[in-house]
């Protein structure tokens, strides 16, 4: 029972923190671009505004269109429950390993693409096909990153990875050449999967370049709020997967007492702050790529991850 409550608390924490992360990234970007920054709480205000509006649905919208926001949000929330962000000691952590997490993200993506095609406007289908393209390029790269972690720790279950990473390196540094390759590849996949520059721009509504926004064009009010929230949650989830693989310091292995949990929470916030700032820097210094440069970007990520594997195998033998 306590474990279930802990589980619920972890998922709710992710839901609560995700808009904050998005707000923090937006704030950092604004600072870097010499603009006056929106408040850190702006995403919450956006959500509040959207939830109060009347939903406007296209005339021909089918039930699939209406349930998709709930499915996408639910998927992301479930993923947040599975990923060990604060502690590995939660019942849902073993329901799905990292490969299944990739599958869960794919489920959300497919539903979103189908909903975008449901109305039958040019932008929706355009966004759907671009999103699916980025997806099929990013997924193998992500799996290769996970393969790297598997070679290192012999597991695709994130709790085991965290446990072994913390147990192996008594001096606390995860200095391994293959992990460095995998880390770079992971960041590239994160950028692509979360609709960030250089693949997509979360603040654009320019027809020719948008991917994620094009799929959401027909959504409004609470549906749009759920979709936006889900996309922030996705960024949060990816960040937490990254922490579990490459920076697991502080994640509590046992949640019997409060102090490791509080420490883990503090470290999580710290790590998110740093990650958000780094993300903002990457987005500021890079330029948006043309859609058809995306395959090159992601095959680069893929090759880096494969290099990591080869480096590991070569160093081993």
């Amino acid at each position: 029972m306590i474990a279930l409550l802990r589980q619920l608390a972890e998922a709710l924490l992710a839901i609560a923190l995700a808009p904050l992360l998005a707000g923090w990234v937006a704030q950092c970007r604004a600072w870097l671009q010499n603009r006056s920054a929106p408040s850190l709480l702006q995403p919450y205000r956006t959500l509040r505004k959207l939830f109060h509006k009347d939903a406007v649905l296209a005339e021909q919208a089918s039930p699939l269109f209406r349930i998709t926001p709930y499915v996408v949000f639910g998927t992301m929330m479930l993923a947040a429950a599975i990923i060990p962000s604060v502690t590995t000691d939660v019942p849902f952590a073993r329901v799905a390993d990292a490969i299944a997490l990739v599958g869960l993200f794919a489920t959300a993506r497919v539903f979103m693409a189908l909903a975008a095609m449901d109305i039958g406007t040019a932008f929706g289908t355009l966004g759907a096909r671009r999103e699916m393209m980025v997806g099929f390029l990013a997924e193998p790269a992500l799996l290769m990153v996970l393969f790297n972690a598997f070679l290192m720790y012999g597991s695709t279950a994130l709790p085991t990875v965290v446990h072994d990473a913390l147990a192996f390196d008594t001096h606390g540094l995860l200095l391994r050449p293959s992990l460095a390759f995998a880390g770079v590849a992971f960041v590239m996949v994160l950028l692509a999967e979360n609709g960030r520059i250089p693949i997509d721009n979360p603040t654009t509504h320019l027809e020719l370049t948008m991917i994620h926004e094009a799929m959401l064009l027909e959504y409004s009010a609470r549906h749009l709020a759920l979709m936006e929230w889900a996309s922030w949650l996705k960024l949060f989830n990816y960040a937490c997967i990254g922490f579990a693989l490459f920076a697991p310091w502080g994640i509590a292995l046992h949640a019997d007492t409060a102090s490791p949990l509080l420490l883990a929470l503090a470290l999580l916030v710290l790590k998110l702050t740093v990650a958000g700032a780094v993300l903002a820097v990457i987005e500021t210094v890079s330029a948006k790529l043309r859609v058809f440069r995306a395959p090159e970007f992601l095959s680069m990520a893929f090759l880096l991850a494969v290099l990591g594997i080869l480096v590991h195998l070569l160093l081993r033998s």
Partner: peptide
């Protein structure tokens, strides 16, 4: 330890 998956729990969740 290596990997586990539960379709039922995933669906239920």
């Amino acid at each position: 330890e290596q990997a586990s998956y539960s379709g039922l729990w995933l669906l239920a969740g």
